[in-house]
Measured scan of single mutants.
Amino acid sequence: DEVRLHVNGHTIEFRGIDEEIFKILEEAAKRGADEEELRRLAEKLLR
């Protein structure tokens, strides 16, 4: 299960996240989070 999030012209792939987590990451990206911040956030949410 892989999703792709487009951030500042880059595509970031995440594996094993559900739609709810994806929406949180998408919102963070809209607020200016970079790839590293998004990955840290995803790790926290998946715990």
Rank of each mutant, 00 (worst) to 15 (best):
D1E: 11
D1Y: 15
D1M: 14
D1F: 15
D1W: 15
D1I: 13
E2I: 15
E2Q: 07
E2G: 10
E2V: 15
E2A: 10
E2S: 13
V3D: 04
V3A: 07
V3M: 15
V3E: 04
V3K: 15
R4H: 14
R4S: 11
R4I: 14
R4V: 10
R4N: 05
R4L: 12
R4Q: 09
R4A: 07
R4Y: 15
L5V: 07
L5R: 01
L5C: 05
L5T: 02
L5H: 01
H6S: 11
H6C: 11
H6G: 03
H6Q: 13
H6V: 15
V7Y: 04
V7I: 10
V7P: 02
V7E: 01
V7M: 05
N8R: 04
N8E: 05
N8I: 03
N8Q: 05
N8M: 04
N8T: 03
N8H: 05
N8C: 06
N8K: 05
G9I: 04
G9V: 02
G9R: 00
G9P: 02
G9L: 03
G9D: 04
G9W: 02
G9Y: 00
H10N: 08
H10G: 06
H10T: 11
H10P: 01
H10A: 07
H10I: 13
H10R: 09
T11E: 10
T11A: 06
T11D: 11
T11G: 03
T11P: 05
T11L: 07
I12S: 01
I12C: 04
I12L: 06
I12N: 01
I12V: 07
I12A: 01
E13S: 10
E13G: 05
E13L: 14
E13P: 01
E13H: 08
F14K: 01
F14G: 01
F14D: 01
F14L: 06
F14R: 00
F14Q: 01
R15V: 14
R15C: 04
R15G: 07
R15T: 13
R15P: 12
G16M: 02
G16Y: 05
G16S: 03
G16L: 03
G16H: 06
I17R: 02
I17E: 03
I17H: 02
I17W: 03
I17V: 06
I17F: 04
I17D: 03
D18R: 06
D18E: 06
D18P: 14
D18L: 04
D18S: 14
D18C: 07
D18W: 05
E19D: 11
E19Q: 13
E19K: 09
E19V: 11
E19W: 13
E20H: 14
E20V: 14
E20A: 13
E20C: 10
I21V: 09
I21P: 00
I21T: 12
I21S: 12
F22T: 04
F22V: 07
F22Y: 11
F22P: 00
F22Q: 05
F22S: 03
F22K: 07
K23T: 06
K23E: 06
K23G: 07
K23R: 13
K23A: 08
K23D: 04
I24K: 08
I24Y: 09
I24C: 05
I24R: 11
I24N: 03
I24F: 08
I24E: 06
L25H: 00
L25K: 00
L25D: 00
L25F: 02
L25N: 00
L25W: 01
E26Y: 14
E26T: 11
E26R: 13
E26S: 12
E26M: 11
E26G: 06
E27K: 10
E27R: 11
E27I: 10
E27N: 09
E27Y: 15
E27L: 14
A28Q: 08
A28V: 08
A28M: 10
A28I: 06
A28L: 09
A28W: 15
A28N: 06
A29W: 14
A29P: 00
A29I: 10
A29K: 02
A29S: 06
A29L: 12
A29V: 09
A29F: 12
A29M: 08
A29T: 04
K30T: 08
K30V: 07
K30C: 07
K30G: 08
K30Y: 15
K30H: 09
K30W: 15
K30R: 12
K30P: 00
R31F: 14
R31V: 07
R31E: 10
R31W: 15
R31S: 10
R31D: 10
G32A: 01
G32R: 00
G32W: 03
G32N: 03
A33Q: 06
A33D: 05
A33W: 10
A33Y: 12
A33R: 04
A33C: 07
A33E: 04
A33V: 08
D34G: 10
D34L: 09
D34C: 05
D34I: 07
D34W: 06
D34K: 10
D34T: 11
D34V: 09
E35T: 06
E35K: 05
E35H: 08
E35C: 06
E35L: 10
E35Y: 10
E35S: 06
E36R: 13
E36Y: 15
E36K: 13
E36F: 15
E36L: 09
E36C: 08
E36S: 13
E36G: 13
E36I: 12
E37W: 12
E37M: 13
E37S: 12
E37I: 09
E37Y: 14
E37Q: 12
L38D: 00
L38R: 00
L38E: 00
L38F: 04
L38Q: 00
R39G: 04
R39M: 12
R39I: 12
R39H: 06
R39A: 03
R39W: 14
R39V: 07
R39T: 05
R40F: 12
R40Q: 08
R40T: 09
R40W: 14
R40E: 09
L41T: 05
L41I: 10
L41W: 06
L41R: 02
L41E: 01
A42G: 04
A42D: 00
A42V: 13
A42W: 10
A42N: 02
A42K: 02
A42Q: 04
A42P: 00
E43K: 14
E43W: 15
E43Y: 14
E43V: 14
E43S: 14
E43A: 15
E43G: 11
K44N: 06
K44S: 11
K44M: 14
K44Q: 09
K44R: 10
K44I: 12
L45G: 01
L45S: 03
L45K: 02
L45H: 04
L45I: 05
L45W: 08
L45M: 07
L46I: 12
L46M: 13
L46H: 04
L46W: 09
L46K: 14
R47T: 11
R47C: 07
R47Y: 12
R47M: 12
